[in-house]
Computed example of a mutant assay.
Amino acid sequence: MLGTKSYIAKSVESMQPSGIRKFFDLAAGMEGVISLGVGEPDFVTSWSAREAAILSLERGLTSYTANAGLLELREEVSGYMNNRFHVSYQPKEEIILTVGASQALDLALRAILDPGDEVVIVEPCFVSYAPLVELAGGKSVTVETTSDQQFKLQAAALEQAITSKTKALLLCSPNNPTGAQLDKKDLEEIAVIVKKYDLLVIADEIYAELAYDIPHTSIASLEGMRERTILINGFSKGFAMTGWRLGFICAPSELAAAMLKIHQYAMMCASTPAQYAALEALKTGMKDVEEMKKDYRRRRNYIVQSFNDMGLDCHTPGGAFYVFPSIRSTGLTSEQFAEELLKEQKVAVVPGSVFGNSGEGFIRCSYASSMEQLQEAVKRINCFINNR
């Protein structure tokens, strides 16, 4: 410390470190660990996308792009969103390329929140949601979901959480950590409440490509919702491009302009080689996406059945690459279960409690691992349970 006073902002000083990172750090120092905690694909980026990035470097395309990103890529994103999810955005004024979907979420919150504004967050939820709301000066208000309802947000519960200070709903479907997917009917019921109270929706749709049983529906595609939705997506999950750090925002021009102002000062633009890789991924990579999805679906079915067979109730998630089994029957808290499983059987999972109060009694397991690793992890978890 430089002096007697604290130089750390109070909002940061009171912030808890990521609960996911804690278990990654514990596992990192152990040999022979199988990690079901990682939230990224085990596939590599398609060769055509990697080659496009290499070619861009060989051609010397290493300068800044426009703040909003390469226009050619924004045009391709526009076509992709229209063709895949039936929602249309103007490339020049309504699409921004960002440094991952995480930066997109930060931009959205900072652009719309004044001090004291409330954002409704659906739990269990990704660990960054509440901290990012608070860093933007807002207040997070949680709505809990339950396994009985397959962790889907109920419109009635949403309405009960709304106050005169509520400005937005932050919605993630398919969901991290539960894999819950909201279908069109679910979203239509939610949209009625959103319009009734004149709210914005920040729609985190980063797992949109990883929907296994029914096609993904974007809430922005519903009548009257495009103009009140900030849609966030990217290339990390569906295109196996986590390390490239490239996401995008689609929003009405007035909202997009506000976010672009922040982006100009905070980030300038997204990585140029990453943008060329993403451009190629959209043009030629959909076959790879479908192959990945097919393999994820097979793994999902295996691990859901395995957890249910060993007595850990597990609903079948509609999307993403996580399962969220209940461990209440063991009598352990989710953190105890995760710590003891790691120590005794060298399997890393994430305790559900890090995703909010309604996550207690559950663990998050990623099936973005090879089938061989999943099979071995299932054996070890089964042994852990049977030895208790």
Rank of each mutant, 00 (worst) to 15 (best):
G319I: 10
G319S: 07
A320V: 04
F321K: 05
F321Y: 03
F321I: 00
F321M: 00
Y322A: 03
Y322E: 04
Y322D: 02
F324V: 09
F324D: 13
P325D: 08
S326Q: 08
S326P: 04
S326N: 09
I327S: 06
I327V: 15
R328E: 15
S329W: 10
S329T: 15
S329E: 14
S329V: 15
T330Y: 10
T330P: 06
G331E: 13
G331C: 14
G331I: 12
G331F: 12
G331W: 11
G331R: 11
L332G: 07
L332N: 09
L332S: 12
L332R: 07
T333E: 10
T333C: 10
T333H: 03
T333D: 12
T333M: 11
T333A: 13
S334F: 07
E335Y: 01
E335W: 04
E335F: 02
E335C: 03
E335L: 05
Q336C: 09
Q336E: 15
Q336W: 01
Q336M: 13
Q336R: 10
F337D: 09
F337Q: 10
A338M: 05
A338R: 08
A338P: 03
E339C: 01
E340W: 01
E340P: 00
L341M: 14
L341G: 12
L341F: 06
L342I: 02
L342S: 06
L342V: 01
K343W: 00
K343S: 07
K343H: 04
K343N: 03
K343I: 00
E344T: 05
E344V: 12
E344P: 01
Q345D: 01
Q345I: 00
K346S: 05
K346Q: 01
K346R: 12
K346L: 04
K346Y: 00
V347N: 02
V347M: 03
V347E: 01
A348I: 03
A348F: 03
A348Q: 11
A348H: 09
A348R: 14
A348E: 11
V349E: 05
V349M: 06
V349Q: 01
V349P: 14
V350D: 04
V350L: 02
V350Q: 02
V350K: 03
P351Y: 14
P351S: 08
P351K: 13
G352K: 08
G352L: 09
S353W: 01
S353P: 00
V354D: 13
V354S: 13
V354E: 14
V354W: 15
F355Q: 03
F355S: 08
F355I: 04
F355D: 05
G356M: 11
G356H: 11
G356R: 03
N357S: 14
N357P: 02
N357H: 09
N357I: 15
N357L: 15
S358F: 12
S358P: 06
S358L: 08
G359K: 05
G359D: 08
E360Q: 13
E360S: 14
E360K: 13
G361L: 12
